[in-house]
């Protein structure tokens, strides 16, 4: 039986009908056509599907679309504003924080969650904060540097609406 759901996705209200079993990540990718959010595992380990839901990083493969009814959601497509990369994206670019790029959207979402809570995280805090995101390419060192770069940038020029 289909359920009506309405959620704000990257600032736009999206109304849809979904089966109760539809995972939020499938709704985002198939229903809403936003393929930047990826699926890397079955068991909530890899974090490739991480999005921001009501201000917090969550694994969208472990949320039903019906549970997100009424939620405010940001996916990777919604991070850059007006053609301007977000400082976290800039950091990943400057410090070579990605190789194949498959884990990157989820990784950036977790970095976003972290920097909301902790504006100047240490290396250890960054490593701990991305514990729920697996990257098979980088060995994480450049990701740590990317997030540090972003923290510095955001500290020197606080983002207006974040």
């Amino acid at each position: 039986m289909a359920h009506k759901v309405s959620m704000t996705v990257n600032g736009v209200t999206r109304e849809s009908e979904v089966e109760p079993r539809t995972l939020l990540v499938h709704h985002i990718r198939e229903g809403l056509g936003l393929t930047g959010t990826h699926i890397g595992c079955d068991t909530s380990q890899c974090g490739a599907c991480t999005i921001i839901m009501n201000g917090k990083a969550v694994k969208s493969c472990t949320v039903l679309a019906v549970q997100a009814d009424g939620a405010d959601i940001m996916t990777i497509e919604g991070l850059a504003k007006d053609g301007q990369l977000h400082p976290i994206q800039e950091g990943f670019w400057e410090e070579h924080g990605l190789q194949c790029g498959f884990c990157t959207p989820g990784m950036i979402m977790s970095a976003y969650d972290l920097l909301q809570r902790n504006a100047s995280p240490s290396e250890a805090e960054i490593r701990h904060a991305i514990d729920g995101n697996l990257c098979r390419c980088t060995g994480y060192q450049h990701i740590v540097k990317s997030i540090q770069w972003a923290a510095n940038k955001m500290a020197s020029a606080p983002a207006g609406d974040d």
């Binding site: 393929t35 497509e77 990369l85 670019w93 790029g101 959207p105």
Partner: peptide, 23 residues
């Protein structure tokens, strides 16, 4: 020279085209 990768803006903004993104 450590030039920034031109691949990155697409990959970082959700505009990649992995196989499962093909429709």
């Amino acid at each position: 020279a450590s030039i920034k990768r031109r691949e990155d803006p697409r990959l970082m903004t959700g505009r990649a085209n992995f196989t499962d993104d093909v429709r």
